[in-house]
Design a binder for these strands. Sequence first.
RNA 1: GGCCCCGUAGCUCAAUGGAUAGAGCAACAGCCUUCUAAGCUGCUGGUUGCAGGUUCGAUUCCUGCCGGGGCCGCCA
Length: 588
Amino acid sequence: MTSLLDELSAIAGEAFAAEGYPTGLGTVQPSDRPDLAQFQCNGALPAAKIAKGNPRAIVDKIATRLKANPIFSQVEIAGPGFINLDVSDEALARRMGALATDECLGAPETGKGKTVLIDFGGANVAKPMHVGHLRSSVIGDSLQRLFRADGWHTISDVHLGDWGLQMGQLISEIGHRGIAPIYFDPGYTGPYPQESPVSMEDLEEIYPAASAACKADTARLQEARRATAELQVGRPGYRALWEHFFKVSRVGLEREWDSLGAHFDLWKGEASVEPLIAPMIEDLKARGLAVESEGAVIVPVAEPTDKKEMPPLILVKSDGAVLYGTTDLATVIDRVKSHDPDLILYVVDQRQHTHFEQVFRAARKAGYCGKAQLEHAGFGTMNGPDGKPFKTRAGGVMKLYDLIAMATEEAEKRLAEAGLAAEYPEEERKDIARKIGIAALKFADLSNHRTSDYVFDLARFTRFEGKTGPYLQYAAVRMQSILNKADSADFTRGERVVLHTPEERGLILQLLALPNAMAGAEQNRAPNILCDYVFTLAQIFSRFYTAHHILSEKDDALRTTRLALVGLTLSVLTKVLTLLGIEVPKRM
RNA sequence: GGCCCCGUAGCUCAAUGGAUAGAGCAACAGCCUUCUAAGCUGCUGGUUGCAGGUUCGAUUCCUGCCGGGGCCGCCA
């Protein structure tokens, strides 16, 4: 089903076309002046520019045509050439009926027949997830949900960091400690033990130690580089160790993402494309796209029109090891071959923008993209109160697990303060607190523009008042509570509604705007548009709720209409929260 | 040094080139014997960093400057 806004735009577009102007000028948008009208169309102004005519004369003609359409209850000319529009109550009620019976609640079908592959999560093997992984996980998962809801075929891939220098650092550190000598014995070729010589907890301790050792001692760094290169050319003992790292890490990572509610279709990593790398480099060399330079193999990607200097993409280092740019490029080949996507979206820190620009250019030059558009959807950092990237009090990196625990604890505090859930079973209260904590983190993260940094403030994020996740959950719970009571009283929810008041009209208009919010969020890869939409919906609902008492309403027609509005609002609210990855408890 | 992003109310943040730049928090004045007082109504708060330019119209596009962050060939 097309959205109300699209229908109005089409009507206005026809009017412009009939006067000899481009259809696109008919774009109708919600009015900037709700006191004057519900909608506005500004197309007459650019039309006047095209025709070099007087906007007023054009707008008169367009308005006359629009007035002939009974969908409008008001068509007025205002200002330099704006057209203010109101839609009739009958048309709104009809639209609402259609919305209520539509399972998708009017979701746009922008992705019909198209495939998007989303690369997010950003985690590495052997490293615990920390606060830096929150944004990629939360934004990526939300985009995945949104694209799917808009009709796209979506494929998500964690694309684990499992093939670079950090692997060599781990291996050489384990060698130094003599934990598992069998993997380092050049004379031994297997089979290697089934059981991992190191646990996730071991890795969490070993990796920082290895990293520090390499930083302090260049000999150790050389050793780690050598181990990396040997792993990549397939030394059996190292490969066997690597397998253990991957398996052990995956268990821990899955647990973390489960608690965040983020899921991946594919658990591939940099190493998955290892077999593709050598042929790819051969191919690039053969075609003269890759060249040797200072002992390394590079792909120059600078273009004459560049204003900024664009360093080449380094495929093979002078020590023979490959880099993440190499695996990223090979991954494009793999993804195009396996899924033939229309779009590959990389939800990765904004600071890696240049890196992706290099990889994308190399992929295009080599013709590896198929029909896929490659796009980096970067994001800003989560900062502490000092405006610098978030740290623990001690100045270290906070683990994601600890962050979630902190949020849950804060949520429990808030519940106690508000006197909510006090008499519920312990287990249920814990579950509610967990859902609130996650909602607080996610909504705070997603409601900021993707590309901007934001300040972490847990006390603010977990409030039940204001623009927060917990507030929206509470709003949903209370709507559900009204509906439960209505069911107990055997009240029916109307199918045909009769709109009478400004509060009812305001609510229905916002409900009907859902498809546009979804389309806008998709187009800009911007979940904050959904956050704005859903918060505004809750505000408008509050106004409606305050103005009209529902369960005590004596007039059956009024009560059924209003119950229908409550039901529909709850459906839309829940749906948008789901797109944001936020769960609503049954009660609070 | 070069390049990229950002600079909006006291604070945290929004705003496809369009009317009077909006929310939340904070402050102030009202509103609960009624569906969970989650809020609602009203009020206060701005030279959109500065200076130019394009445009009928600029927070938005262009140029310069100031301030903050980031990136800049063998880490990811």
